[in-house]
Design a protein around this nucleic acid. Sequence first.
DNA 1: TTGTAGGCGTTATCAC
DNA 2: GTGATAACGCCTACAA
Lengths: 325, 325
Amino acid sequence: MTTIKDVAQKAGVTVTTVSRILNNRGYISDATRQKVHAVMEELNYQPNEIARSLYRRKSNLIGLIIPTVAHPFFSELSSYIEYYAYEAGYKILLCNSHLDKVKEKEYLDMLKRNKVDGIIMGSHTLEVDDYINPKLPIVTFDRCISNDIPYISSDNFQGGKLATSLLIERGCKKIAHISGNLNLSLLANKRYEAFIAEVNNRNVEHVTVQTEINVFDSKQYEKLIHRLFEEHPDIDGVFSSSDNMAANVIKVCYRLNKNIPADVKIIGYDDTMVASLLVPQLTTIRQPIEEMGRLAIELIIKQINQEEVEKKNILPVKLIERETT
Amino acid sequence: MTTIKDVAQKAGVTVTTVSRILNNRGYISDATRQKVHAVMEELNYQPNEIARSLYRRKSNLIGLIIPTVAHPFFSELSSYIEYYAYEAGYKILLCNSHLDKVKEKEYLDMLKRNKVDGIIMGSHTLEVDDYINPKLPIVTFDRCISNDIPYISSDNFQGGKLATSLLIERGCKKIAHISGNLNLSLLANKRYEAFIAEVNNRNVEHVTVQTEINVFDSKQYEKLIHRLFEEHPDIDGVFSSSDNMAANVIKVCYRLNKNIPADVKIIGYDDTMVASLLVPQLTTIRQPIEEMGRLAIELIIKQINQEEVEKKNILPVKLIERETT
DNA sequence: TTGTAGGCGTTATCAC
DNA sequence: GTGATAACGCCTACAA
């Protein structure tokens, strides 16, 4: 490995001078500057960022913990997060927790040991203390962990309301809601709350099911949905808490020879790529994924710079009506 | 930040002793060991991995450069890569190049400056020199950069052949192939070659189109496919080089009132999640994504350990026949 | 069994 | 303008 020493030696100066040139500090004669630059070029010198990080006590690393990047929502979100991080001079350490408490804690510790400058949590099953001890810039998605930790979320209640009332307006008489795990105290649960509120308010028959996020087990989902339709053959509207799940609903309806949207109307959530890839194209609630990613980086960086940040960041959602309603 | 010094001081020993305990080296009396452990616990001490990396000249970091993690194939691949990396004690630095030459070079340099122990390239538009200088463990996907750099690929020729001959056997008389950018000299181009070979061999009429990978521009794809069917209304078979693209073909067929598989048969490539999420479920060529991810990590680690590795790693593909053929 | 000291590659504070 | 030197936090010969 070629270091600053090698450059200094070959250029006939000391490391101080090379370092100065590297960082554009202090006065340097044009002659030496040229020479040193030439040598750096020749030796193909690249400053060691690890040494820099150690000295500066700043790694320019941001840890990203999500359930799994294989899920379309998180994969799109990650792509934006990485994009904006890179623009701001930060790098992303990717961690897939699979919503496993143990793994999540391990990742959290690992990130701390690696002195990341901040952590973005898209997955959280742990207790508050694990996050804030010691104080480290954090932003979470979809969960209010404590009053100190800023969180980003889209307007889940509004989303749930929009979805439910659309189905009702389209004439659905018995609506099913398929939610994620409601015990995780995620803000996403507000979709459920909104559903219940709306359906009760308008006096519409309804039924709900919970599932775990497990991208890879599509078969499992199908079974669940199949059973749902068996037990309630008169369901004519489904509000699914993710586009992927909604895709499974479409599949099952197709098998059951239920026409969409004539017999059953379906609405998803997220507006990931799959939504517009499906046939029929999925009506869904769009979360502003890019904006969420951008904001996550902004909030982390502001915290790094000791600036005050808004704790509660609720972004607007939007109903995207396509062909399933 | 609490360092090894703080621990040493509070425990009434020197840093050496603490370091020894941390690394399980040399003889330590039970008394001091207990005491030091207690103090570490109390101070919530975590060794600084940056300092360790500097000393050991090993970061346990692996750089992952891909076009974009928002693409289902790379998102699934990344998820496996991260999984196996973590198992082996490595961390993943995520880089989305968007197939931009400049960005790719910047990422490459960034990774070198950050002293990653290896690089996994799922995106490569650069010249050989940029990669091998200096010598750093690398593995690439789907591209043979030089004889020194190991690469992983699935059996693209076989995949192309399987796909094409299936369509022919199912009675297609005029087959379209939608490929990626053939100028990138990716091994994926062998799918194209196999297609041409097979179709010529069996004397079947055919037509081909190239596209850029751009996940987000589904509309663009639709237009392209639409035009294809306009110019060649008699196409009755489509071999698409990705599942996503195939999904767009399904969509367009649906619009054009072409029945699948009666009027048009479609086969995709990759077997990403979307393939089984679609209606009708997509017939496709499965790449062993998990195995590719696992192997990438294995090859990197072997190189890190100075072991010899196989340069050419071609994994088998498998025809997954579903409902579109 | 434990301590001292030097070094990993870089930057900043003083001198000259 | 440029050069010693100490420090960032950790690890390991070599001593004791």
